[in-house]
Design a protein around this nucleic acid. Structure first.
Lengths: 332, 332
DNA sequence: GCGAAGCAGTAGAGCGCTCTACTCCGTGAC
DNA sequence: GTCACGGAGTAGAGCGCTCTACTGCTTCGC
């Protein structure tokens, strides 16, 4: 910077002003400085800038699972919104381990990010509140409402109703749910399903699962081994539903003729032709945008928490159909 | 830091030593400092530390496309390797636009990352070399070999051979390729295919595409509209292959009875039951690990470039089969 | 008993910026 | 002609650390 200043024949302060394109510099000196900077290959050191200014214009985005397209699509929305506001975004993932998430968030804090955006963080509620009380935080798909941070969630109860209504309309009464285990939104989705089933006088069949293909496949096997297997399976998310599809194919059970399958999230995967999964749509990109909006408000000083809830919508594709006539366990 | 130092009754320098757990501090003062830091909720400011030390222990990872599981899986390998070396990794994506990639890389440079890892960067070769001459760089899946940076690439020629051999073994002679357009590895994959076909005396049929589902679907439609459509389609990557699958289903063409389909990358998508795509396997996680290894070597001073090439392997699944008897364009 | 060696700790300069408070100079109002 | 004013630019302190060179003090060998 000193070099640039002396080469351009101005003070360091002026160079600084030019680099931040302040209106306080004349066109001529701006030119001179820019030319000198170009010649010397000078680029401002962000660390020094942030240290001096106390602001980083950076938000950390922690994604629970980089494999799940739900999260990357959400991140895309967040990145676009951040971009419009000249915020830099840093993506990190805990790679599905709590220690990993902790490390990721701490890295953001050590960097003094202006705020953090947590997506389905697997961290405990205590840790979450702990972090949130130290810096502006917005949490997406967490289903834990706190006064310390803003949240953006999906109306899981309604989601459960949509799925059950759809399946009931098709004549199904024996519907099995594969839950997401202890993961964020797992319990909410499960409870939404149970509530909807009970309201309609139907017995909710629930088996334990997780939000990935393997767990979906394993749980599907369990369900199909019941004395009277369900005629429809509602998986906790699209990934798990895909596991179900895979397993059913292996077992020679055809979809939707023998068994209907429903997912959740409406990730790109659900729309793929050979999969064509009926699922519950979430506006992923918009989720990310809203989260950034809230975060920006928080960063600029809002103290009281805001909690947004988005309404889901059912997307019908070809993995669901009318209940089969022969209600026995279909084999081939 | 001053507060911590005075609370613990030691100098700032000692606090600094403790925070970097240097062996030069006695157990007792370490305890005191840690306790004081805990009480005051002190955490070292990374920006200041990096500014003072001139090192960041951070590498930037720029992924071409966050939607393509190939990249996220590679990033996972990179993250694991980085983690073992106490390197912090920053993920960024250009969201499929060159300007986005430029911004992402410049953000890394402004942050003075110790090095950058580029995955299938869409940047021009000139820009690539420009960045690489300024900081340690490793480029994965770029297929542009330069003395300024290390590369980790797949042997695309061999990949093309594997696919063609497999299809020829199944009796196919009219094989269409959907290329990746101008994207990194697009031309290499195309040329690998062409070379392999010509070597076997077969006419290479090539249509333009891109590495996503939409392009795959559109190109498949084109191929099927030929007077004599191909009996096998080799898509540029798994994503495009999935587009092909979707389109063929729409057209009532069954896979693999009427047409065989092959992808490239062997992402998780390929393994999904209803997709079950024959594809060319790339060790994605290992790609990431190797890249980090190379980057670390570069950061610690190696000057001469290293270029790793990995051998692909064909994974047979159920999207390929023997050539149909009736060679006319199948309709339903 | 004395000097060399080694351990624990410290002072203070410096990393590369920003920011506040200032100076200087050309205008325009009266 | 004088003075207030605003635009353009500058000096220098400080952001929160690390690092080099140093000081004391204990230990050990002979």
């Amino acid at each position: 910077m000193d070099d640039v200043a002396s080469k351009a024949g101005v003070s360091r302060a002026l160079v600084s002003l030019v680099m931040r394109d302040s209106p306080r510099v004349s066109a001529t000196s701006r030119q001179k400085v820019l030319a000198a900077a170009q010649d010397l290959g000078y680029r401002p050191n962000l660390w020094a800038r942030n240290l001096a200014s106390g602001q980083t214009q950076t938000v950390g985005v922690m994604l629970n699972d980089l494999h799940n397209p739900f999260f990357t699509e959400m991140a895309e929305g967040a990145a676009a919104a951040a971009n419009e506001r000249d915020l830099q975004i840093l993506i990190n993932s805990g790679w599905q381990r709590e220690a990993g998430e902790l490390a990721a968030v701490e890295a953001f804090m050590n960097m003094r990010a202006d705020g953090i955006l947590l997506a389905a963080a697997g961290l405990s509620n205590e840790l979450l509140e702990g972090f949130a009380s130290q810096m502006p935080t917005v949490s997406v798909s967490t289903y834990f409402v706190s006064q310390y941070f803003d949240t953006v969630n999906n109306n899981e109860d309604h989601g459960g109703c949509l799925v059950v209504d759809h399946l009931v309309d098709l004549g199904h009464t024996r519907i099995g749910h594969i839950d997401g285990g202890a993961a964020r939104s797992g319990p909410e989705r499960r409870n939404g399903f149970i509530k909807a089933m009970v309201q309609r006088g139907l017995a909710p069949i629930v088996v334990e699962g997780a939000f990935n293909e393997q767990a979906g496949a394993a749980a599907a096997a369990q369900l199909m081994e019941l004395h009277v297997p369900p005629t429809a399976i509602f998986a906790g998310n699209d990934l798990a539903a895909i596991g179900v599809l895979t397993k059913l194919q292996e077992l020679g059970v055809s979809v939707p003729e023998d068994v209907s399958v429903v997912g959740y999230d409406d990730t790109i995967l659900a729309g793929i032709g050979p999969i064509s999964l009926t699922t519950v749509h979430q506006p992923r990109r918009q989720l990310g945008r809203i989260a950034i909006d809230l975060l920006v408000e928080r960063i600029s000083g809002r103290r009281e928490a805001r909690h947004e809830q988005l309404e889901p919508r059912l997307v019908m594709r070809s993995s669901t159909g009318r209940v089969p006539q022969s209600k026995g366990a279909p084999q081939s």
